[in-house]
Computed example of a mutant assay.
Amino acid sequence: MRNKTVGMKKMLSNWIKAGSILALICACSASTALDEEELPKPTDRVISFSGFEWLVRKTGTTKEGPGPNLFSDSEDNVWVDAQGRLHLKIVQKGGLWYCSGVVLRQSLSYGKYIFYVASDVSKLDQHVVGGLFTYRTDEEEIDIEFSKWSDPNNMDAQFAVQPSERAGNKVRYNLQLEGLQSTHAFDWQPSYIDFFSVQGHSAVVTTDNLIQAWRYTGTNIPPDTDERLRINLWLFRGQTPSDKKEQEMIIEKVEYIK
């Protein structure tokens, strides 16, 4: 049964500075207007997940980036189940497709971010993007993304530091998952960012579970202030899923280690 204990709260004033406008750039390619993500609009929907409070993304009737897409804060799109797992879905209503996303209410800064994924994200439709990332500005962003970017022959995952079009700022790889569960993480420090993806649920990398690992030591490590952790599920360039089916990504938990 979906968690319906959602309160009516005033939240955006706690973390949006007056007059600020941020944009989020898709890590697969150079920046384009279609890839920009807007800040969440004022919404009364806040969910509790993994010991944190998250704002649920909602747009109006006009599509917004990334995509552009419509985002819904409906419980058909975003909910926490009885097991405490976060569900993000892309659903169709009235002939329109609605994507989903959540934004952490607080800034966490440097540390290790671990995402325990409970669905086979390698099976997402070729037009779908699942994102686990911190965002401050367009060029101050750390990404783990699951997508083929509309090319069925592409690899299905990537680690990236924005701007990802710069040489050395991105590594693509295939998940080749052995089950529904996988773990993905980045350890964000002042002089490096360590990424990893492993089979199953484990915060420890071994030769048996390793999918991909990468250390970034380039010049685009983001500063450790005013960023927000985000999780989203959206349609690349706003396209309809090629299989015309609803899409889902399930996150069992998120851990932050200072």
Rank of each mutant, 00 (worst) to 15 (best):
Gly65Pro: 13
Val171Arg: 01
Lys112Arg: 11
Thr43Arg: 03
Asn220Ile: 00
Glu255Gln: 14
Ile21Trp: 06
Gly94Val: 05
Asp76Val: 10
Lys58Arg: 12
Glu246Cys: 09
Glu248Trp: 11
Glu252Gln: 15
Leu104Tyr: 03
Phe186Cys: 03
Ser150Val: 04
Gly131Asn: 05
Gln181Ser: 04
Ala185Arg: 01
His127Ala: 14
Ser242Gly: 04
Gly94Lys: 05
Arg228Val: 02
Trp214Thr: 03
Phe146Asn: 06
Glu38Gln: 11
Ser122Glu: 06
Gln239Tyr: 12
Ala167Gln: 01
Tyr173Asp: 05
Leu39Met: 13
Val128Asp: 14
Asp76Glu: 14
Phe115Ala: 02
Ser191His: 12
Ala82Ser: 14
Arg57Leu: 09
Leu177Lys: 03
Thr137Gln: 14
Leu229Asn: 00
Thr43Cys: 07
Asp44Gln: 07
Leu177Trp: 02
Gln247Thr: 00
Tyr192Ala: 11
Ile221Leu: 05
Tyr256Thr: 11
Gln83Met: 08
Gln239Thr: 07
Tyr256Cys: 13
Thr225His: 10
Leu55Arg: 02
Ile21Leu: 13
Thr183Val: 06
Gly67Pro: 12
Pro42Ala: 00
Ile221Ala: 00
Gln83Pro: 03
Lys4Thr: 12
Leu210Thr: 00
Gly19Asn: 09
Ile142Thr: 00
His87Met: 13
Gln176Trp: 11
Val117His: 02
Asp156Glu: 06
Tyr113Thr: 01
Arg228Glu: 07
His201Gln: 13
Phe133Ile: 07
Leu229Ile: 01
Asp156Ala: 02
Ala185Gln: 03
Glu246Trp: 08
Ala203Ser: 09
Gly95Arg: 11
Lys93Asp: 08
Leu175Trp: 09
Glu145Val: 11
Asn77Met: 08
Cys28Asn: 13
Asn3Ile: 06
Ser107Cys: 05
Phe196Asp: 02
Thr225Tyr: 09
